[in-house]
Design a binder for these strands. Structure first.
Lengths: 217, 217
DNA sequence: TTTGGTTTTTGCAGGGTCTGTACGGATTAC
DNA sequence: GTAATCCGTACAGACCCTGCAAAAACCAAA
């Protein structure tokens, strides 16, 4: 069940290996693991897009990726995880970036700066997001399972980090700040993938909109 | 495995039955179905809170509710649905309320009015939300499965309804408007359940915050 | 090249979710 | 009272996911 796409993956892998011939066994293993993970993801997405989400069983994906079903779960904790894009940001780095900001900086300012920083890291992976966005549009139930737990935890953490900032007048204010800015970031990414332009600019635009408020809308 | 709670439910049910002795068979069946649904929900929540989410298998819930596992799925499409509160709003009524607003009203105004209207309907059920909120805090992964698909569809619909309103300057603006106002409503509900005050006031407050923007935060 | 340790893959068993189907009992309609 | 309809249930079966232990692949040193 090998496809041309798989072969391409493997070939480019060989090249990379030859070029960077000096790597520790540790690195070698990590690289191979990452590549296999990506290959499985590709197989999963291809099946889901071509034959529908229903056809994308673990068995089918594993067959396409030339591994046993059991091995699939050595790489992904759930089927949905394989059908989700590489996370755009981890809760950890988000929190880390935020806590690196001065504690007396207004919360919104900090969040804006953090969003800008994330946007920088985002650009290289934006191109890979399109098929996943297509999947997400066709099967909204996918949006849920993989990310939701992480996202909730992230929002709670941000909430904690934002509460004590100056200018935050209460619990509701803090909560709103977090969901609005997080929503702004996500919206900017979505628009960008949908063809609305470069992420960085859209993030700027989104934050400006939030900053000005919706009085005129 | 009947509990006092169940008995209470059944007794009040009897009373209601006697009082409203005139009901069509149609109504009778609907009422019984709704009550059984609620009883199953109660059983599920009680087990999950008392013994942990892990113990809340369909089998255990069914046993506690005195039905067969197969019957459980005649009432809920998934286990998670039984552990989620009655939906605060359906996509349909949300959209309906929104499309009842004049088409030339600024989008944010319309959304604000709709949120107010929803808040009115919300008040009676707020009291029942506490155990579900507790569950959601303990097990964030629950937040996902049941609502996410619906929520995505709702947001997409709102997006479509908002695009054409005056004052909406682009796709990003529309998207932001929707996620921010939706987030405001959800945040207000959460704060209210957490003990922050009456929902209506919190919704007002949240929308005022959005209206004024985060320039000072 | 062989050897031996480490990592990876895999098979197997088992628990859990969820669906289609078909049968039997209860409810409703006539 | 009988027929039509609705509802709960058993059963079979597909799929998801996990722990465990054996097999296979890998890799470094002899």
């Amino acid at each position: 069940m090998h496809s041309l796409h798989d072969l391409h993956d493997l070939q480019s892998l060989q090249k990379v290996h030859i070029v960077q011939s000096m790597e520790s066994p540790q690195e070698r293993r990590e690289r191979r693991r990452a590549e296999k993970r990506q290959a499985i993801r590709n197989a999963a997405v291809r099946i889901a897009l071509d034959q529908g989400l229903e056809a994308a069983t673990v068995e089918a994906i594993s067959a396409a990726a030339d591994i046993s079903p059991r091995t699939f779960f050595n790489y992904f904790a759930s089927k949905e995880e394989a059908l989700a894009p590489v996370p755009l940001w981890t809760p950890e780095e988000f929190i880390e970036l935020l806590s690196a900001r001065p504690a007396d900086e207004p919360a919104f300012q900090s969040l804006k700066v953090v969003a800008r920083a994330l946007a920088q890291r985002l650009r290289p992976v934006m191109a890979d997001l399109k098929p996943f966005m297509e999947l997400r549009n066709r099967y909204p139930e996918l949006a849920a399972k993989a990310r939701a737990a992480d996202e909730t935890k992230l929002l709670e953490s941000l909430l904690g980090a934002v509460r004590s900032r100056p200018g935050v007048t209460g619990a509701l204010h803090a909560r709103l700040l977090v969901v609005a800015t997080f929503g702004a970031a996500v919206s900017a990414v979505q628009e960008s993938v949908a063809g609305g332009g470069p992420v960085e600019e859209l993030i700027e635009e989104a934050f400006t909109l939030l900053e000005n408020g919706f009085r005129l809308s």
